[in-house]
Simulated scan of single mutants.
Amino acid sequence: MPNTTMAEQISQKPGFIAALDQSGGSTPKALAQYGISEDSYSSEDEMFKLMHEMRVRIMTAPAFKNHKIIAAILFEKTMDGLVENKPTPTYLWEGCGIVPFLKIDKGLEAEKDGVQLMKPIPGLDILLERAKKLGIYGTKERSVIRLANQPSIAAIAQQQYEIAAQVAAHDLVPILEPEVLVKSPEKAKAEVILRDELTKGLEALPGNYPIMLKLTIPEEANLYADLAKHPRVQRVVALSGGYSLDEACKRLKANHTMIASFSRALMDDLRISQSDQEFDAILAKAVDKIYDASVNKS
């Protein structure tokens, strides 16, 4: 069974989830936003080393440990790295009281019929076993929806639930992340279809393992409220999806059963050139704003 103390925190504690899981193609963009250009590194190993240093700076900042962040989603290399000479999941849980999750998808297939399914995940069972031993509580896997194509969205939901079952077999809690693009020309329609397909999948879900959902903040406020109340769902969390911090928080406040799981919106104003004092103050301001939007609803 998943760790019961962690489960209680994820289900009940006020706060939000920090997404520190940029990987692959998104890493250079995240580093550039932080102020590290591509000519600052000459290999993938150097790139990920710089990314880990950025994440360590975030995780060791006072604002990250003020009990407003209830969980963090990690990239595999971050999970395998050290923070203050401790394995990252150990540092987060024992040092900060933050529940560690792991991003497990390996990117997206080419778009077909308005969606992008996940690529195959080779060696997933081995990765899940290793994650469990390192103290990881759950996983996150992302696919993408651009158009309101019902059969395609049904395929997205089916793939997400299939991976969830594999994750749950290792006593880990899966976060399903079928992201509707914020720039989709059919965003509202796609979200209604997705809600219906996720509901069907929940009703047909075998076993008794819990899941979580990470979804784009919907055009119709509280569209996912019934999903959040389902007994198999520990929490519904929101991705920022390219919205600015202010816009993401404004939209999140209107959704009473969603908390944040932001990445770009959390880190957009952080720069390598900032002093530790400046860095900590900017991070604290973002943490406070995201916490407020997650806890105090309009």
Results as ranks from 00 to 15, higher is better:
Ile58Ala: 08
Arg57His: 12
Ala155Leu: 08
Leu252Gln: 01
Leu198Lys: 03
Gly97Thr: 07
Ile136His: 02
Pro62His: 15
His230Asp: 13
Ile259Trp: 08
Ala157Phe: 07
Gln33Val: 11
Ala281Pro: 00
Asp80Leu: 10
Leu117Pro: 03
Gly135Met: 05
Leu181Glu: 06
Phe279Ser: 06
Arg235His: 06
Arg271Asn: 11
Lys289Met: 08
Ile70Lys: 06
Ile259Asp: 02
Val167Gln: 05
Lys86Asp: 04
Ile163Lys: 01
Leu92Phe: 07
Thr90Gly: 06
Tyr137Thr: 05
Ala72Ile: 02
Lys297Gly: 04
Leu252Ala: 05
Gly242Gln: 08
Asp105Ser: 03
Glu44Pro: 01
Pro89Asn: 13
Ala188Gln: 13
Lys187Arg: 09
Ala7Gln: 13
Ala164Ser: 11
Leu215Lys: 04
Asp80Asn: 10
Ala190Cys: 06
Leu102Val: 03
Ala18His: 03
Gln150Ile: 12
Leu82Ala: 12
Gln160His: 12
Leu50Tyr: 03
Asp171Met: 04
Met1Asn: 09
Lys106Phe: 06
Val144Ile: 15
Asp269His: 06
Ala265Glu: 01
Tyr209Cys: 10
Leu215Ile: 12
Gly207Glu: 04
Lys68Phe: 07
Thr5Ile: 13
Ile272Glu: 04
Asp45Glu: 14
Ala72Ser: 09
Ala225Trp: 05
Lys112Met: 14
Gln22Lys: 09
Ala131Gln: 03
Ala265Asp: 01
Val144Gly: 03
Pro89Ile: 05
Leu194His: 10
Leu176Cys: 02
Asp269Cys: 12
Asp171Ile: 05
Ala72Asn: 03
Ser298Trp: 10
Glu84Ile: 12
Arg271Gln: 13
Thr199Leu: 09
Gly201Arg: 04
Ala286Ile: 05
Asp246Pro: 02
Ile259Glu: 00
Gly15Ala: 02
Thr139Asn: 10
Pro151Leu: 13
Leu227Met: 15
Ser263Ala: 08
Ala32Gln: 14
His170Val: 10
Ala204His: 07
Lys13Asp: 05
Ile10Arg: 01
Tyr34Ala: 00
Thr257Asn: 15
Pro89Lys: 06
Lys68Val: 07
Arg142Phe: 06
Gln22Phe: 08
Leu205Tyr: 11
Ala265Lys: 03
Asp125Asn: 11
Gln277Asp: 14
Thr88Ile: 06
Ile17Lys: 04
Glu179Gly: 01
Glu203Pro: 01
Glu8Gly: 10
Lys214Glu: 08
Leu117Tyr: 04
Lys68His: 10
Val99Lys: 05
Phe101Asn: 05
Gly95Ile: 14
Gln166Tyr: 12
Ala7Arg: 07
Arg232Asn: 12
Ile156Cys: 03
Ile69Ala: 07
Glu38Ala: 13
Ser11Ala: 09
Pro218Phe: 02
Gln159Ser: 14
Ala188Asn: 04
Arg142Ile: 13
Lys189Leu: 14
Gly114Asp: 05
Phe64Gly: 00
Leu147Asn: 03
His256Ile: 14
Gly15Pro: 00
